[in-house]
Design a protein around this nucleic acid. Structure first.
Lengths: 176, 176
DNA sequence: GATCAAGTAGAGTAAACATTCTACCGGAGG
DNA sequence: CCTCCGGTAGAATGTTTACTCTACTTGATC
């Protein structure tokens, strides 16, 4: 039941991340979820619902990858957070943010947009507060979006630039 | 002929900007282009070609909006450039970058990806050099992407943050 | 051992949509 | 005058695809 739910959500997330939101057919999504068409539709009664399910799963995984700690090392500064984001990009999201991708593929879907907004608001607030509010949430948002979006184009150079900007913003804040 | 070409390209750009790349049907694109289906296919022999046509048109308009001068005021700093980008977002692209949107809607299309890469490389190099190289192209890329992507979420606050970051980067560069 | 909840496998349906084709029109040049 | 070039209008085609439905299996619980 909940086992089944997370299995499906995980499979859907993988499929959408690998192939985008428009290309995979429902049959392809079924294969990725490893489940029959009937049960897939039971847990997500429309293709749109499959997208939402995948994004909710993604949100949880992203949060725990960036902010929570398997071993105890919580990010202490925006620069730490950026390192973890870069790590995420390297291993999981080399094509960019899945939330933006979802919204862009269905720009009229109101519920996707609000999912995106909640996701980004949570991330940027967490990033700012983990960094001891050396930096505003809006600064954090611009830098995080900049890194995430520039990553596919500039890879490690984008990380270096983002971290330099974060360091400058912090120093400026500390000096009032 | 060329008259017809730019009319079609402009109409397509408007349609894709307003409704995304997946939703509008070719018939809707035809209406936006103000032309018959037959001539539409003459100038863009497939839907994919329509996307490319729209993006090329977009690229020209974006460059001239940001960097060239109707009245003579070329941007002299990255901050000036950011003001012009914000102006563009206010009036034209409140939903985000059309190139990213196109790639995301067809992630396997190699030609779209290279269009995106050329577009972004040109923009960030121009931005850095207009600013007298107070800032690297990679810094400029991160800040520009950050503003463009954060704009739909934070509007004017994103502009303020982006400009502050640009100012800090410049001061740091000037002080070696 | 019967029942029932929850699954698989996959055929069927109806709509949407990209692309093509047929038939027609206006006007500029010879 | 007439003849094409370059356009309009829109019907036809064939494929793709989201979603539904039927028939069957499994395994736990009473």
């Amino acid at each position: 039941m909940n086992k089944m739910m997370t299995k499906i959500a995980g499979g859907l997330e993988r499929a959408f991340a690998a192939r985008g939101f428009t290309e995979p057919s429902v049959e392809e999504l079924r294969d990725a979820a490893g489940v029959s068409l009937r049960t897939l539709y039971k847990y997500a009664p429309s293709r749109d619902a499959m997208v939402r399910l995948a994004l909710e799963h993604r949100h949880q995984r992203y949060l725990s990858h960036i902010f929570t700690t398997p071993t105890g090392s919580v990010p202490q500064s925006l620069e730490d957070t950026l390192d973890r984001v870069a790590d995420w990009m390297r291993t999981e999201a080399s094509h960019g943010c899945l939330f933006h991708a979802a919204v862009v593929s269905a720009p009229t879907d109101r519920s996707l947009r609000s999912l995106l907004e909640r996701h980004k608001a949570e991330i940027s607030q967490l990033a700012a507060s983990q960094a001891g509010n050396d930096v505003t949430a809006s600064d954090a948002l611009v830098i995080l979006e900049g890194l995430t979006q520039a990553w596919p184009l500039a890879k490690e150079a984008a990380l270096i630039s983002a971290k330099r900007l974060a360091a400058l913003a912090k120093r400026a804040a500390v000096a009032h």
